[in-house]
Simulated scan of single mutants.
Amino acid sequence: MRPLSPSIPEKEFVLEALGQGLRVDGRAPLEMRQPVLTFGPEFGYVECSLGKTKVICSIDAKMVRPSPERLFEGVISLHSEISPMASTEYEAGYGRPSDAEVEISRMLDKILRRSDAIDKESLCVLAGQRVWHLKLTFHFLSDSGNMLDCACLAGITALRHFRRPEVEVVGEEVIVHAPEERAPLPLAIHHTPLCFTFALFNDSLPALLDPSHLEETLCAGTMSIALNAQKELCVLQKAGGVAMEADAILKLLEIGVMKAKELDKLIEEALAADFATRVVEVR
């Protein structure tokens, strides 16, 4: 039989250290692991790492008929799957998603799709007949804690990195130009939502930003805050039974605003460095 993890001495050690404002990995309570963004050869392929947590987001685009209720809007869909490769805790579901996968998928949908980060009307090619369908696929390679924030960062960076083919409409005919003929076009993005998750503990222990897998296991609850660098709150979700005062929540929001500005700058620099190496002209 597999031993319980974490063990009682390990739990006591972590909680005692947190009481002194220390974390096992040496970070301060409100310190994030340094994100690393790696781009693939295709536009819209991004691998994001937070410590040993790794998530890949890739984007595919195809033309479809719009829904009858949204004749002038494109379609955005998200698909995610946590395979046993991410951690031994996940088992092959044979088509049935795990609870963690459902929770992460719902939050990603709220943050990336329902927050209107992308201008869906700009994805319309021919009103009522042809629109772009963007499919975001998330692959979770390794779970070392806080997969939600890592996936959100990978997803929004992939959207900003993605380029769709230029399309020309002549009468009722739709002509899709290859990248060799005309430079592909970026998506129309209203804002850049970013997610920050805090692990919450009882007994007056500090909230921990970007919790590790061990800290997620030991915490009594979590709070995930999605906002952008313009201080606009997109999603706030609290899980668990830890009571919080309004002032404590506002403090976490202030921290999220500060971190959002830092991550937004990091994304800008990473994109600029990648585009500088591209042969195809980007506009």
Rank of each mutant, 00 (worst) to 15 (best):
residue 3 P to W: 06
residue 3 P to V: 11
residue 5 S to M: 14
residue 8 I to P: 10
residue 9 P to I: 10
residue 13 F to C: 10
residue 16 E to C: 13
residue 20 Q to G: 02
residue 22 L to P: 00
residue 25 D to R: 15
residue 25 D to K: 13
residue 28 A to S: 12
residue 29 P to G: 10
residue 37 L to C: 03
residue 39 F to Y: 05
residue 40 G to Q: 04
residue 41 P to K: 06
residue 43 F to Y: 14
residue 44 G to V: 04
residue 49 S to I: 08
residue 49 S to H: 09
residue 50 L to W: 06
residue 52 K to C: 12
residue 58 S to K: 10
residue 61 A to L: 09
residue 62 K to F: 15
residue 68 P to L: 07
residue 73 E to Y: 01
residue 74 G to Y: 10
residue 75 V to N: 07
residue 78 L to Q: 00
residue 78 L to G: 04
residue 80 S to C: 14
residue 90 Y to P: 02
residue 95 G to M: 04
residue 97 P to V: 08
residue 99 D to P: 05
residue 111 I to W: 04
residue 111 I to H: 06
residue 115 S to D: 13
residue 121 E to T: 10
residue 123 L to I: 15
residue 126 L to T: 01
residue 129 Q to G: 00
residue 134 L to I: 11
residue 134 L to H: 11
residue 136 L to G: 07
residue 136 L to H: 00
residue 142 S to Y: 06
residue 145 G to R: 05
residue 148 L to R: 01
residue 150 C to N: 06
residue 151 A to L: 12
residue 152 C to F: 05
residue 152 C to I: 06
residue 153 L to A: 02
residue 155 G to L: 01
residue 157 T to G: 05
residue 161 H to D: 02
residue 161 H to R: 01
residue 162 F to V: 00
residue 164 R to S: 05
residue 167 V to R: 01
residue 168 E to N: 04
residue 172 E to H: 13
residue 176 V to M: 08
residue 185 L to E: 00
residue 186 P to E: 05
residue 187 L to G: 01
residue 187 L to S: 00
residue 191 H to W: 13
residue 191 H to A: 10
residue 192 T to P: 00
residue 193 P to L: 08
residue 193 P to G: 12
residue 195 C to S: 14
residue 195 C to N: 06
residue 198 F to N: 04
residue 200 L to I: 06
residue 201 F to N: 04
residue 207 A to T: 10
residue 210 D to G: 06
residue 212 S to R: 01
residue 213 H to Y: 14
residue 215 E to T: 09
residue 216 E to V: 00
residue 221 G to P: 03
residue 225 I to Y: 07
residue 229 A to F: 00
residue 232 E to W: 04
residue 236 L to V: 15
residue 236 L to E: 14
residue 237 Q to S: 13
residue 238 K to H: 15
residue 245 E to K: 05
residue 246 A to F: 02
residue 250 L to Y: 08
residue 251 K to R: 12
residue 255 I to P: 07
residue 257 V to M: 05
residue 258 M to G: 13
residue 259 K to V: 05
residue 261 K to A: 13
residue 263 L to P: 06
residue 264 D to S: 07
residue 265 K to Y: 15
residue 265 K to G: 08
residue 266 L to A: 10
residue 272 A to D: 12
residue 272 A to G: 07
residue 281 E to L: 14
